[in-house]
């Protein structure tokens, strides 16, 4: 890997590189460990699932940052810990200039209006006993904004915005298709006029023919409302399509982050290289010529990560250092493109 331009510490470089862009969210040293307990009568902690284990990244206003990686690598936990739906074990989350991790009560509630989440499963995330109107207006009610009549008018407006006929305002979720339910979830997320949305696999549960509808809607809304997205996904082709930058996670850590085209055209971490090579392309002629990096073995458990580099147990290019030294830090390999790998150092 001799395409390396230089190596500077992440924070320093970021400041010089992106002075012109406004950082809306800044995550530093974020950790979320879930305790593993044992014992029937007296529960005692015997270990911890290190779901998120030291994550640093910035999100710029108006951009979409993709968060990718295999199942269990900590994507959803990262999203939820940023929103303070889970309280972090360590680290800092600064959103619109304010530190969230120490915020409580009313102050935190006020901040939450600015940050929303859209979930993967449009079937499980909507209360089946509430009408669409009530689902979408619930956040308004909780935060006690608008009168009843204003609310109704506003909800109709939101439904229209996400491409649903306001005529359906009194219907229940089961009367809608998957794609329509995801639109309801999006309308609810938009109700309090947020600036930042965590979209946690918003299209994974949808049919291929419906995914494009929802993605186009998310893109249109971003343009119109100047929204910032953290887009969590499995589908690396969709991530390339929708994201300005992408962060690749492995076992609770970010191993590579950078502008989408740089990461996809020139992946530097051996895990990113394997991940991208594994994604099939819907073109038989391209597939005939593809060369895959087939990883051996399974992802280690986040309760018991490897001694050295997290990826060392599956890495096709690991050497002594990777087993002896602790996890390598993220360094900047080309402008804006960071990677954590001893091979690249």
């Amino acid at each position: 890997m001799d395409s390396v331009v230089g190596s500077k510490v992440m924070q320093q470089q970021e400041q010089t590189q992106n002075e012109d862009r406004e950082v809306i969210l800044s995550v530093r040293g974020l950790k979320k460990h879930f305790p593993i307990t044992a014992g029937i009568v007296i529960q005692r902690q015997v270990g911890a699932v290190k779901a998120v284990d030291g994550v640093d990244f910035d999100v710029y206003k108006g951009e979409t940052l993709g968060l990718v990686g295999e199942s269990g690598c900590g994507k959803s936990t990262t999203g939820r810990t940023i929103l303070q739906l889970y309280r972090p074990t360590a680290g800092s989350v600064v959103f619109e200039g304010k530190e969230l991790t120490t915020m409580r009560g009313n102050e935190l509630r006020q901040m939450r209006r600015r940050m929303q989440i859209i979930f993967q499963d449009p079937f499980a995330s909507l209360n089946p006993r509430m009408t669409v109107g009530n689902i979408v207006s619930e956040p308004l009610l909780v935060h006690n904004v608008m009168s009843k009549n204003e609310r109704k008018e506003y909800v109709s407006h939101l439904l229209e915005k996400v491409g649903l006929n306001p005529f359906y305002i009194n219907r229940y979720p089961h009367e809608f298709s998957g794609g329509q339910r995801q639109r309801i979830g999006i309308a609810r997320a938009l109700a309090l006029n947020p600036s930042f949305i965590v979209a946690d696999e918003p299209i994974s549960a949808l049919d291929v023919s419906i995914q494009a509808q929802v993605v186009n809607l998310l893109e249109d809304l971003q343009q119109e409302l100047n929204l910032t997205y953290l887009f969590i996904a499995h589908d690396l082709s969709m991530v390339r399509h929708i994201c300005d930058r992408v962060a690749v996670m492995y076992l609770g850590k970010v191993v590579e982050i950078g502008p989408t085209n740089l990461v996809y055209d020139n992946p530097l971490h051996p895990y990113t290289q394997a991940l991208l090579s594994a994604v099939p392309v819907p073109d038989p002629e391209v597939e005939e010529k593809r060369r895959r990096i087939i990883l051996t073995g399974d992802v280690p458990s986040p309760a018991n990560p490897p001694q050295g580099c997290n990826f060392s147990t599956r890495c096709p290019v690991s050497f002594d250092l990777c087993y002896q030294e602790p996890d390598p830090p993220l360094i900047e390999a080309e402008p804006g493109h960071f990677v954590a790998c001893h091979r690249v150092l």
Partner: peptide
């Protein structure tokens, strides 16, 4: 054709708007 056009591809950078199939199954 609709399916093919609605899919983003790994080997294509992301500027094209996805063509969506309207309606539901």
């Amino acid at each position: 054709l609709g399916l093919m056009n609605s899919l983003p591809r790994l080997d294509e950078d992301g500027n094209r708007r996805l063509q969506q199939i309207e309606g539901s199954p």
